[in-house]
């Protein structure tokens, strides 16, 4: 997502580059099904976050909206849907990354594979044991992508894990609350096609979700 922000032609040219970047991201978000946008402003005129609302969007659209903002070294919080959790994880698993799924003994790994996780490069740690922070730290040190659930960490532990993530440039997807996560996906409703009596089986679901995406580039940057 590195955009050519540094230009030598002066302030006017810089604005032109940003405009083009903004337009490209607007188009991408529109394609992803974003129907409402509120950009929060940070200091000195730079927006610190974007709030997106997806309505009846496919999981792939949700993943497309999240993936550009979910940069290495950060945490994504996903609540309300395990399918959305797999979609976000699958969208950011690189071609050489290894993934650890931890604290999710009921993980539907077949669904995870359908969402993009490569099982041959995935390990499962069903339980955290007595010392979850130690296990999570070991996983964050070794894996490019960690999908974690059932965590109860102190704020201090979270900060230490975030520091390790910044160092290793890994990604952590958390099923549950994570204070100050830069990417927050809150699925309000998972809509499966209505099953009639003895009718067609469950199909690909749609989601209603609220997204908070902090940092990076996007519509929130003015």
């Amino acid at each position: 997502m590195a955009l050519p922000l540094a230009v030598s032609a002066g302030h006017g040219a810089q604005v032109g580059v940003l405009d083009r970047a903004r337009q490209a991201l607007r188009a991408a978000e529109a394609r992803a099904g974003v129907t409402a946008i509120r950009g929060g402003r940070g200091a000195k005129g730079c927006a610190s976050s974007s709030r997106l609302k997806l309505r009846q969007a496919a999981l792939s659209q949700l993943a497309d909206a999240v993936a550009p903002r979910f940069v290495p070294g950060t945490v994504a919080q996903v609540t309300g849907s395990t399918a959305a959790l797999w979609a976000v994880a699958g969208a950011v698993m690189g071609s050489e990354d290894w993934c650890a799924v931890a604290g999710l003994p009921g993980a539907g790994l077949l669904a995870a594979e359908s969402a993009g996780l490569v099982l041959s490069r995935t390990v499962l740690v069903p339980q955290w044991g007595d010392r979850p922070p130690r296990v999570l730290a070991a996983l964050v040190d070794a894996y490019g992508l960690v999908v974690a659930g059932g965590l109860k960490l102190t704020a201090g532990d979270m900060r230490r894990i975030e520091a390790r993530l910044r160092f290793t440039q890994g990604r952590l997807v958390v099923a549950g609350r994570w204070t100050l996560a830069p990417v927050v996906v809150d699925v309000k409703q998972l809509i499966t096609a209505a099953l009639g009596e003895n009718q067609r089986p469950v199909g690909e679901p749609l989601v209603d979700a609220d997204l908070v995406l902090k940092g990076g580039f996007g519509n929130g940057i003015d």
Partner: peptide
């Protein structure tokens, strides 16, 4: 050969050591 694979194997060994037997699994489709 892959650096990521080497890291991942070491990481799994480490977690296996922390959690003991039956702590780490590999899924196979």
């Amino acid at each position: 050969s892959n650096h990521a694979a080497v890291r991942a194997v070491r990481g799994a060994d480490r977690v296996h050591t922390i959690l003991g037997g039956q702590g780490v699994y590999q899924p196979v489709a």
